[in-house]
Computed example of a mutant assay.
Amino acid sequence: MKTKVRTPGAGLIWVKSSYSSEEGGECVEVAECPGSVHVRDSKDTNRPGLVVDASAWTAFVDFASR
């Protein structure tokens, strides 16, 4: 199960992995947009995140899933 968080005013739905715990571990959240993926630190959501091309994100996830 993934936790989804809608960011007010931004129109993004942030998703945190179900492997993330509420104990404050090392977690990231992602939000998909047409053509790009936004990535941020789930512990400090006010800090700037990253925006990557959707094809680069897909390649990263495919590589990490091996």
Rank of each mutant, 00 (worst) to 15 (best):
M1A: 11
M1Y: 08
K2Y: 08
K2R: 13
T3C: 01
T3W: 04
T3I: 11
V5P: 00
V5S: 06
R6A: 13
R6Q: 12
R6P: 00
P8D: 10
P8G: 07
G9W: 06
A10E: 14
A10F: 03
G11V: 05
L12N: 02
I13P: 00
I13D: 14
I13G: 02
W14N: 03
K16A: 10
K16H: 05
S17M: 04
S17W: 02
S18V: 02
Y19F: 13
S20H: 04
S20T: 08
S20P: 03
S21W: 04
S21M: 05
S21Q: 10
E22Q: 12
E22N: 13
E22Y: 06
E22M: 08
G24K: 10
G24L: 09
G24V: 10
E26A: 15
E26S: 14
C27S: 10
C27Y: 03
V28F: 07
V28G: 00
V28R: 00
E29G: 00
A31Q: 00
E32H: 11
E32G: 06
C33I: 04
C33F: 01
C33G: 07
C33N: 11
P34A: 14
P34N: 11
V37Y: 01
H38C: 01
H38P: 00
V39M: 06
V39I: 15
V39H: 01
V39N: 01
D41C: 10
S42I: 07
D44S: 14
D44F: 13
T45A: 15
N46D: 15
R47F: 11
P48F: 03
G49A: 04
L50I: 04
L50V: 02
L50N: 02
L50D: 01
V51I: 13
V52F: 12
V52I: 15
D53K: 09
D53F: 03
A54Q: 08
A54F: 03
A54N: 06
A54C: 07
S55H: 11
W57E: 00
W57P: 01
T58Q: 11
T58K: 12
T58D: 13
T58H: 09
T58I: 05
T58W: 01
A59V: 05
F60S: 07
F60N: 08
D62F: 06
D62V: 12
F63T: 15
F63Q: 15
A64F: 04
A64W: 07
R66D: 15
